[in-house]
Computed example of a mutant assay.
Amino acid sequence: MKNKGNVFKASYLTVFLFFATFLNAQNIDINILRDINVNRNKNLDPTFKFITNIAVPFSVATPIIIYSVGLIKKDSTIKKQAIFIGETFLVSAFITTALKHTIKRERPFNTYSDIDKATSAPGYSFPSGHTSSAFATATSLSMAYPKWYVIAPSFVWASAVGYSRMHLGVHYPTDVFAGAIIGSGSAYITYKANKWLNRKRSKKDR
């Protein structure tokens, strides 16, 4: 009985610590967002709206343009790189959509009245789809073309997309952070999956 009592006490303590940590993290999350959104320079709103609005179209257009170049040049390597970038975008979109509909986190402007919604944002908040798309493109593009003049602008752009989502009041910092991890992770998963499939094909051809 004494052991059972200790187990219950440990369970209650674990649950209490979990909720205390969660609430504290939520407080930090909204406080950072308030610093970014409520105190923002509204003159920059049009710039960040533009950055936000081009995020997904740019992510979709990038593999299409690269594949077109591969077709024109009749270069199979370029076409493979384009397919890899496109696959990464799709993997990222799938994971992001699945998480959004599983977690169902409300947008910050729906929960906190002082958060100023400066752009349209339907659906759920976690994770940030714009950020995951941007980081999926930036990471896969950098892996396909590992040159500093590709890597640096790609990640500056992806980071600007993530920041724009907070500036415009439609995502928490944790939404953006998760989106960046999912986008970058999708590139790694896709790369590893392609490597594994290529290895299997080469074994069959022997």
Rank of each mutant, 00 (worst) to 15 (best):
G5P: 00
N6S: 11
V7Y: 09
V7G: 02
F8W: 08
F8A: 11
K9G: 09
A10L: 10
S11W: 10
S11T: 14
V15F: 09
L17M: 14
L17W: 11
F18A: 15
F18N: 09
A25W: 07
Q26E: 14
Q26W: 13
N27R: 14
N27E: 15
I28M: 09
D29V: 03
D29S: 04
I30L: 11
I30Q: 06
I30G: 02
I30M: 09
N31W: 09
I32N: 04
L33A: 05
D35L: 13
N37H: 04
N37P: 01
R40Q: 06
N41L: 12
N41F: 08
K42V: 15
N43S: 13
L44T: 06
D45H: 04
F48T: 02
F48Y: 11
K49V: 13
K49W: 05
K49G: 04
F50V: 15
I54Q: 04
A55H: 02
V56E: 07
P57W: 06
P57Y: 06
P57K: 04
F58S: 11
F58L: 15
S59M: 03
V60M: 09
A61R: 07
T62M: 14
I64V: 15
I65Q: 10
I65M: 08
I65C: 08
I66Q: 01
Y67N: 07
Y67M: 12
G70S: 07
G70H: 05
K73E: 10
D75S: 10
D75V: 07
K79T: 08
K79Y: 05
K80W: 06
K80L: 12
K80A: 15
Q81I: 04
F84A: 00
I85D: 00
G86C: 10
E87K: 12
E87W: 04
A93Q: 07
A93H: 03
A93E: 06
F94R: 01
F94P: 00
I95V: 14
I95G: 01
T97N: 11
T97M: 12
A98N: 02
L99W: 06
K104E: 15
E106T: 10
R107P: 00
